[in-house]
Amino acid sequence: MDLIILTLYLGYFLLILGTIGVIMGPKVNDPLNRLLNIEVPSLGLMLIFLAYNQTLALMTYIAINSIIILVFVRAIIKNEELEA
């Protein structure tokens, strides 16, 4: 089994396990914990992009991912402010 297949399988593993972690992981009722858990499946997705040799998609996904985290953090902060 060569390195590409291993990377791909690692990506699958992280993706499925991370999805289960986001859905029913520990303390996911806090939105911030859920946001941090989402990083695991997105890392799996990046490994899959890497294995398929899709450079542009990988770089764009990394950039977009960081912006999406900003958006989500803003939404979470606003939500917390309004509920307090």
Binding site: L15, V22, I38, P41, G44, L45, I68, F72
Partner: peptide
Amino acid sequence: DLHTLLLTDLVECAMLV
């Protein structure tokens, strides 16, 4: 609603795969 929005990110991951 906020949790739904967070989970939508996961659906996007599935689509991209």
